[in-house]
Design a protein around this nucleic acid. Sequence first.
DNA 1: CGTTCCGTTGACCTCTATCAATTTGTGTGG
DNA 2: CCACACAAATTGATAGAGGTCAACGGAACG
Lengths: 251, 251
Amino acid sequence: MNEQRQQATRQHTCERCPLRPLPIFREFAESELDFVASFKKGELTAERGASVLIEGSHNAHLYTVLSGWGFRYKMLRDGRRQVLNYVMPGDLIGLQGTLMGEMQHSVEALSPLLLCVFERSKLDQLYKCHPGLAFDITWLAAREEQMLDENLLSVGRRTALERAAFLIASLTMRAKAVGLNGNAAVGLPITQQLVADTLGLSLVHTNKTMRKLADRGLIRWRDRGCEVLDLDRLRDIAHSEFPAETKRPLV
Amino acid sequence: MNEQRQQATRQHTCERCPLRPLPIFREFAESELDFVASFKKGELTAERGASVLIEGSHNAHLYTVLSGWGFRYKMLRDGRRQVLNYVMPGDLIGLQGTLMGEMQHSVEALSPLLLCVFERSKLDQLYKCHPGLAFDITWLAAREEQMLDENLLSVGRRTALERAAFLIASLTMRAKAVGLNGNAAVGLPITQQLVADTLGLSLVHTNKTMRKLADRGLIRWRDRGCEVLDLDRLRDIAHSEFPAETKRPLV
DNA sequence: CGTTCCGTTGACCTCTATCAATTTGTGTGG
DNA sequence: CCACACAAATTGATAGAGGTCAACGGAACG
């Protein structure tokens, strides 16, 4: 909630981007790298619980997550909240606000979050001079849409247990793809309240559902987070496709 | 379901696009119009019930809806279906499949549907030579994402009655913006089964919910569709923002 | 060492799903 | 123009999933 808990710094140069070397991201041309370096305006840090973007505001910046976790959500006036998706390293956020003016959703940090900040005013130049990068941005938007489709299917048509398993499994796989938590058992920095608001369930029922998964030895709650013990069986319960993550762009 | 019921034709030139003159769409530069005319490969017709795009297939074309209604959906293996969004004139479809290969959702016609077909192979050229159009495509993708966010909020956190009112109201407003049904009472070419699969409810409960709206004189079912009688009160029940539709691109 | 956050549980109740007909509207062939 | 066939809307009865309320316990924090 506190925007104050954000800090601007400038530490990572694009040439030494800690993310780009990961095998999941596509190669960059020299000229693209140069441009992105100039496109990057600085960095922003947000601690756990801090708001990065706020529904209704007019923040025109564009960000790429360098490290950490966050989530995107919308709220109704009476306080009901729906988590739309989670953000993790390599994800682009703020595109809607950048293109269409007012933000229609908020983003909050789930862990200390490090963001690259891009200059909106240079976006036109990006589209003019670097069609490959422009294509990448569209690609990332389409990927976000795909994840939302899947979440909507989940909330609309899967049972509580399926939804829960699907959420945990897909977050885990996304996290692994960008090297979060290394090889250790993946721990998701989420609370059951957050899961409830993601799955469209009440907190109590979410707890009972997660308990079932825990009783079967698939997950465990500890250290303010969820530890995944048996990804394969979670995927079975979700009985979903989970296509392999393909090479993707990183702006 | 029948792909056979699709026909390729070529009747509308981009210069005389029936959609572009509408006030909701942004102006086009001469050069952009020329390019789009060459980008357009032909037209495709689909009758009510015909599949335009199929989940799991590799159709790499991109389409813009010229006239008619359709819907985008996903299915689980056991038959459960979730409608993700509706498509109407001016909407771009097939972007996910074009960019990422395999389609992750299907699109079916709700009424006779007329589509402009674009050539995937020229998309690179579009990004290279017409950054304004590239930007437009990204813009449309972001808009789709925004609508999905709203639908997810609805299915996850709104009550059945709110969801129903929200759906009918937002479809009506979108239809009006692109001049569907002219000034006449707007009629939505949807069935209650479709509404059920959109709202994440059962058919029976959807019927009872719609009945409440009908009893209050807000809608009426007739002619295989839903007639909207009192848009304002529907919006009240949905108690949602409904920002005015701004000028938007049309590719 | 109290406070706060978060996970956990049991009791109870409501909303929504399911089942099973029935009715109404539309399209078709006679 | 009528009868039949089928799609879609309705409705009542019953069951089950999930919501709400209220407490409690453990762990992190100041």
